[in-house]
């Protein structure tokens, strides 16, 4: 009896993984001898908005980067709808942290968005008018159409974040993976971004974001992964986002996390 129960359970886990737009299994990443992320399993539910939440240094961004093979994990596999990531790259759009690039780079807003179509364009494909129209449409969705020909160095932090989101939208992907999309952005940008993400979710796409503001988790997200090097708890927000779990994730640091000035302002 107990044996069949276990088998049932692993079988249904396996089904969930096969159907998942992003299933991470046994992921360990380490810088030197200390693991930043240790043996993490995450199965993102299709059509959900999932937050990865945890204290500073919990390995949130590291997990995302390793999942997309931006950095090389020590161990772990990633599957996209049951297939290896390498075959499914074009289904995933990644929005890196805004601070990860040099905004004095000689390029314009519209050029950055066009970069989202480089895979589709290939090495030599010409940028045609429908590509330009698609790039403009992405900018319009994030409210940045008026900025198309500005040099990116002239943008505010929130505008930079919107441009990054527009680039991801131009990819026409099924899964949107965002690293701290609300870090250091103004309230209007936060609203604009969350509206776009909810539109994507309502259109059946999947959103996975590293998030730092506990106060807005229940309002913005369906599922949550509480991470502190390992997964403390994962599942629907109403089941998992409890004081006990948060305490286990943040330890004594919870109070400071709760009065994060960003969350008060938002």
């Amino acid at each position: 009896m107990s044996i069949s129960l276990v088998t049932d359970r692993t079988a249904s886990d396996e089904d969930a993984r096969m159907a998942s737009p992003l299933a991470i299994r046994g992921m360990t990443v380490s810088y030197g001898q200390t693991p930043a992320v240790f043996s993490v399993d995450v199965t993102v539910r299709a059509g959900s908005m999932t937050a990865i939440v945890g204290p500073n240094g919990a390995g949130k961004s590291t997990l995302l980067k390793a999942a997309l093979q931006v950095i090389k994990p020590l161990a772990g596999t990633v599957s996209v709808f049951g297939k290896p990531l390498a075959q499914m790259r074009d289904r995933i759009a990644y929005v890196p942290q805004r601070a990860s690039v040099d905004w004095d780079f000689p390029t314009r807003v519209i050029d950055v968005v066009t970069m989202g179509m480089y895979r589709q364009l290939g090495l030599l494909g010409r940028v045609r008018s429908h590509h330009r129209a698609a790039a403009m449409a992405s900018l319009t969705r994030v409210g940045m159409a008026d900025f198309a020909t500005r040099q990116i160095g002239q943008l505010s932090g929130g505008q930079q974040q919107r441009v990054f989101l527009a680039r991801a939208l131009a990819q026409e992907a099924e899964i949107y993976v965002l690293d701290e999309p609300f870090a250091g952005v103004d309230a209007a940008t936060e609203k604009a971004i969350i509206a776009v993400l909810k539109e994507l979710r309502d259109a059946g796409r999947t959103v996975l974001a590293v998030h730092h503001d506990l106060a807005t988790v229940p309002e913005y997200f369906d599922d949550v992964v509480l991470l502190n090097t390992q997964v403390v708890a994962a599942g629907p927000v109403e089941e998992v986002f409890t004081d006990a779990n948060l305490h286990a994730t943040y330890g004594g640091r919870l109070t400071t996390a709760r009065i994060d000035p960003e969350s008060v302002a938002g």
Partner: peptide, 13 residues
């Protein structure tokens, strides 16, 4: 792309 945003370049394959 590699000069502007290497992380994004890697993530898009």
């Amino acid at each position: 792309l590699a000069a502007f945003d290497p992380g994004y370049a890697q993530a898009t394959g």
